[in-house]
Design a protein around this nucleic acid. Sequence first.
DNA 1: GCAAGGTC
Length: 863
Amino acid sequence: MELIITEKENAARRIAEILSDGAATAERENGVNVYRWGTKRCMGLSGHVVGVDFPPEYSDWRDVEPAELVAADVVKSATQENIVATLRKLARRADEATIATDYDREGELIGKEAYELIREETDVPVDRVRFSSITDREVREAFANPDEIDFDLAAAGEARQVIDLVWGAALTRFLSLSARQLGDDFISVGRVQSPTLKLIVDREREIQAFDPEDYWEIFGDLQGDDAAFEAQYFYDDDGSEAERVWDEATAESVYEDLAALDAATVTSVRERTRTDAPPEPFNTTAFISAAGSLGYSAQRAMSLAEELYTAGYMTYPRTDNTVYPEDLEPDELLDEFVGSSTFGEDAESLLEQDEIVPTEGDEETTDHPPIHPTGELPPRGELDDDEWEIYELVVRRFFATVAEPAKWAHLRVVAEAAGHSLKANGKRLLEPGYHAVYPYSSASENVVPAVSEGDALTMSDVSLDAKQTQPPRRYGQSRLIKKMEDFGLGTKSTRHNTIEKLYDRGYIEGDPPRPTTLAEAVVEAAEEFADRIVSEEMTAQMEADMSAIASGEATLDEVTAESREMLDRVFEELADSREEVGDYLQESLKADKTLGPCPECGEDLLVRRSRQGSYFVGCDGFPECRFTLPLPSTGEPQVLDDSCEDHGLNHVKMLAGRDTFVHGCPRCEAEKADETDDEVIGACPECGEGAAPEEQRGEGGDSEAQSASDHSSGQSPREETAEAHGGKLAIKRLRSGSRLVGCTRYPDCEYSLPLPRNGDIVVGEDRCAEHDLPEISIVDDEDDDDPWELGCPICNYAEYQARNAIDDLEDLNGIGGATAEKLAAVGIDEPADLRAVEPDEIAANVQGVSASQIEDWQAELAD
DNA sequence: GCAAGGTC
């Protein structure tokens, strides 16, 4: 038997398809697909299936001095047990094996990891094939000419693993221990994340240090026979043209000269044609950037791309390549779109061009082809709005890369008055070229009417605008990813994750990201004691070392030994400063959590976390001072810069993904609740008059109202409330800021239904026939839309739960919105329901859902 | 529980 190993499941399937001419069949082994045809077996790994770590005796942070990690062994162990087991099992039966992992450094290492696992089972020959895109021709060619594993290249990757682990773990533990941050909130540093954080912190420093400068600009409206346009004053500044006037007196005098006149003479008209080349094919960075301008975060863009890739609609989204492979036939790919209602016309117009020559970028790599559509079109309704928008972006980008350049006419008009010059620049699209198929890049025109040299124009509305220079702008996510790419930080697969990690670790907030006080302190501490870890040079040096290993000029041991010596010296320096660094980090951590003065003792109020994990506001004077305020139960609190005028407390924002909201001043919120009376709206269905004996509680586990901190104590009253106790339902406002419909017998009766956080709650006249509760509407004075007719709160909550159930289903990987609805129609409306079904039975009853798909979902649920 | 790199 001949065994073929690929880097991922998808590649295994496609390679099996190609080599078997479509005859391969799939078998499940240990939850892993194994493709078979003839005497061949092909399986996919899931990237690295083994990982590096320290031996277990180093795992307790408090027992081990961080510096000891420098000399500690680094061992490999399986991280994907089922895949490793399958690989071993197949290896035992194999007569030969072929490594077909990705054609890049990390792929070579992943291949070597598979090789070592095979070697533990058998000594059959193992060879290596390399191809940069999974196309019929490339794959066949590669398998016809097998090569050997490049152990030096793999060793280069191993050096990276060791150095990253040792530096990252040792310094992370050192900082965390010194600041006594051992829980979830440890303080991390690493070769990639820390220089990235420094980029953000350095930018913030520039912004802080920025000293704005005053300048003035002068504009005037010019008018010819039938044309008017705005022109700007400019002057010659040492041979270059300048518009900004830095001296107020000069600006005033020019302004007065011009304002006194009502005519100007055209002294020059220049028209030039400019070619606007179509964009290059998408690599990961360019794709993230384009998706970013459509409003997607880097992480979101990648996860949508991943879905479209898995569904077969576009190629692999993680690539550095910007040159299409030779065997991509643009006209054949365009042909696939002919007849599509969205893309058909554009595809046809592109096919009419005399010649179809795709653009290419500077990066030509062997990893994967640039991102492009596969030519398989998603059926209507299969994609949700976001998926579709990203898909369309990828299709149109491909269209743009095979389209003609655009042509612009640039027109520049200069006029003179009182010895001063004014100019106007216009541009007009002569030939739309690629803009016709790619509407994302700006094609806006700025027309300056045709005038001729010597024309006399009237001048009016001369204005003098006082302006100030602006600080540099914060880096947005895609700008940051580009910077990382420029510095060689991270890879196409990890950059967006690194940024996400900085958010998770409490180093950055908001979008564009802004560093926290903690981030500034970590960067400062590192700059002083371990400059290497915050410098992009560590990566540059490592790249050089890796090249040396790959070319045989250095060895893995030499490189890692040298790196360990360097880290030893860092720890020597750090030894005396442990407390100083720790205190500084602790202070900064506190600064990020401080709200303002405690009304009872004057110490600082801080955001704290209870033992149960919920957040609240507590006093730094604890335990002497026991003042507290509640916070909402959803999300992570973030202290904002602005503060409350009444209490001097900073406002708080609750970060909870899409449900993020500004809570405001916690003292104001608590006082509002104290001042608001409960409004009774009807009987409690659980313990009020006419309560049904069977239980019919609103029992949303996640509902904010249910878990709101000051409304959840007391034992379950279930048993005793099956009968009527005269409980009534009332609209309540909690001190944490949330609002709900709850029983007046709370805490004896815990019945509650959530209400929205914002807007005025208006209780209507009409009552729900089923529940005898008033119809409620929510009026938001900040938006002019019609009020939200929430209706009967019980009915509303039931609908809300049903919607959530469908969302949960959709969240299961691979279940699209349309499919989730079909499943819901046969009574499967939450993931748990899927566990119980017979795959074949559902497949027979629900169109478009296969039994194997259901098996996959069930396997996923089982994890 | 630490990193960064694969992949899902």
